[in-house]
Computed example of a mutant assay.
Amino acid sequence: MKTIKDILEDQKDVYVIDSTSIYKNYVPFDLSAKHTDELNLDLTDAEKFEEFVENHLSANNAKVAFGGYLERRNLYKRSETFNSENTEERNIHIGLDLWIKAGTSVLSALDGKIHSFQNNISLGDYGPTIILEHEIDGVTFYTLYGHLSLESLNGKREGQLVKKGEKIAELGKAPVNGDYAPHLHFQIIKNIENKKGDYPGVCSSKDLGFYKENCPDPNLLLKIVN
């Protein structure tokens, strides 16, 4: 039987946001703690953060900024969702972020069905989120799409079939997307256990081994960087 890595690498021409923005128009985006500390970047102001993203895109003549898989960030320090007195700090990002304007179409990566969806409303969380279930060559896995618009959840139902490249949502603005500059958090999940409408997108150093294994690099599927 093929491994999930084999299956992801076998897929071709996969896009999860407006496919007119082809990958040659993408630019890497570094939000690691080291880099944002050097820039003295205020990550708590979504409006300034969005301006920073727009300036990065403009300076690189790009349409989409991408990055973040296994990146250690300071972005989550402001929220008790990731920093509580009783748990280890979660600051390692285990999905891929695609930074582009609110309202941009979000596409299903592959054929599948809606596994679950919900609005995760805590500060710094996903906001509106959709999780799809896929089965290829006898292997079941999931893709998560976070930081969507509220309207993206309208009319959705569990089990609803979706096709590869089908529009399933739009990106949300800061007031509903967890208070971030607009972007898509895209994540692949092997075993979702009993979770619905939500799955950790950031982990602690202690749990990194588990999540690195359970959430493969999304670039295996998207192939933004070969």
Rank of each mutant, 00 (worst) to 15 (best):
M1T: 05
T3Y: 11
D6F: 07
D10A: 12
Q11H: 06
V14T: 09
V14A: 07
Y15V: 05
S19T: 14
T20F: 10
S21C: 14
N25V: 12
D30Q: 11
K34L: 15
T36F: 08
L41P: 01
T44K: 07
T44L: 12
D45G: 09
V53Y: 02
N55C: 10
S58G: 12
A59C: 14
N61P: 06
A62H: 04
A62V: 05
E71F: 05
R73C: 08
N74V: 11
L75W: 06
K77V: 11
K77R: 10
T81G: 13
E85Y: 11
T87S: 10
E88V: 06
E88T: 07
E89F: 02
N91R: 06
H93P: 11
I94L: 05
I94K: 01
W99Y: 15
S105P: 03
V106L: 08
L107C: 09
A109C: 11
D111V: 03
G112C: 04
H115C: 10
Q118R: 12
D125A: 06
T129P: 04
E133R: 12
E133G: 08
G138L: 10
F141W: 02
T143L: 06
L144P: 12
Y145T: 15
L148T: 08
L153S: 13
N154Y: 14
N154I: 15
G159P: 10
G159Y: 09
K163M: 12
E166L: 15
K167S: 12
K167A: 14
I168S: 09
I168G: 04
V176N: 05
V176M: 11
V176Y: 04
G178A: 14
Y180G: 07
H183T: 06
Q187R: 04
I188S: 01
I192G: 06
I192V: 14
K195W: 14
K196I: 04
D198V: 03
S205H: 04
C215S: 02
C215W: 00
C215D: 00
P216Q: 02
P216D: 03
D217K: 00
P218Q: 00
L222D: 00
N226W: 01
